[in-house]
Simulated scan of single mutants.
Amino acid sequence: MNIFQSILYPPPPSLFLNAMSVVSVISLANVGISELRGTHLSYSKFWNWKEAVSAKSATATGAKVSARTGMLLLYAPALVAAVAAFFVPGVMAAPRGALVTAAIGLHFLKRVLEVLFVHQFSGNMMIDSALVITFSYLYNTVLIIYSQYLSKNMPEPQIDLTYVGIVLFLVGIIGNFYHHCLLAKLREKGDKTYKIPKGGLFNLVICPHYLFEIIDLFGVALISQTIHPFCFAFGSMFYLMGRSLATRKWYMSKFEDFPTRVKALIPYIF
């Protein structure tokens, strides 16, 4: 018996779910590669970075919303889906069903609360980019919960990683929140200028909030021990690796005093 059989439930009896798990990894990894190539989703600092974006992105026109509204649009549907799952018959009866649903729900609840009370925003967001990300978060949330539901009649993995997952999830969500607070403190209200982040792991990497988000998502995957959450976590990791490298490149282009010892995502390594 290999390690995967020891730590994972068997593949679910759903061709659709198995196919979508593969799609999640490939599509998110592809977006990460696009970030490295300079083709960015139309939000945040990269939208106006004409030196790095493609001609299409740099001249993008279309419907826009405020960044705050756009960010709420990204996260709220996934949160609603997680809350609704608690009222769907049979979902909570699955092994770890309540834990997995609560974890992914807390993940998006934190994001919504940060949008409302923590983050400082500048500029707008293109509706088309917002809808792509919204759909990704929503369908992955639904499939994570559905994957757990399908595990209810399957044999438990030989190695129970539930508590390891809970610890990783808590470390990830707390670390991500802490570094988001540090980012928010860089600006006074109404200030739209960018500054080099400092404090916490920002002294070692430019995107520690991404690092902790990856830890958070792998925590959810270990709580679940089903295939789709791992696919979503790996896909998100590949995307955030590309995004963090693009972020580091952006800071180096904008700030002559950016410390080159600061890595993109993993201290001293990457």
Rank of each mutant, 00 (worst) to 15 (best):
M1F: 10
I3S: 07
I3E: 06
I7V: 15
L8W: 02
P11N: 09
S21T: 10
V22D: 07
V23Q: 03
L28C: 13
N30I: 05
V31F: 01
S34T: 05
E35C: 15
L36W: 11
R37F: 04
H40W: 06
A55N: 12
S57C: 09
A58I: 08
A60K: 15
A60Y: 08
A60G: 04
T61P: 01
T61W: 00
V65N: 02
S66K: 09
R68M: 13
R68H: 12
T69E: 05
T69M: 14
M71L: 05
L72Y: 01
L79P: 03
V80G: 08
A81N: 06
F86N: 12
F86D: 08
M92Q: 10
A93S: 15
A94Y: 05
A94K: 03
L99E: 13
V100Q: 03
A103N: 05
L106F: 14
L113V: 07
E114L: 04
V115Y: 04
L116R: 09
H119N: 11
H119P: 04
G123M: 11
N124Y: 02
M126V: 01
I127H: 00
D128W: 03
S129F: 00
I133K: 00
T134R: 04
T134D: 09
S136E: 04
Y137F: 13
Y139R: 06
I144H: 01
I144P: 00
S147M: 03
Y149P: 00
N153S: 14
Q158Y: 03
L161M: 12
L161G: 04
L161N: 02
T162V: 09
Y163V: 09
F177H: 14
H179C: 10
L183D: 07
L183R: 06
A184N: 08
A184I: 11
Y194W: 12
K195Y: 15
K195I: 10
I196W: 10
G199S: 13
G200I: 07
N203E: 15
L204W: 10
I206F: 03
P208F: 02
H209V: 01
L211M: 14
E213F: 01
L217M: 14
L217N: 05
F218I: 02
F218V: 02
V220K: 02
L222T: 00
H228D: 08
H228F: 15
F232C: 10
F232R: 00
F238M: 15
L245R: 14
L245K: 15
R248K: 14
K249S: 14
S253E: 10
S253F: 08
F255V: 11
F255M: 09
V262L: 13
K263W: 08
I266G: 06
Y268W: 15
F270R: 04
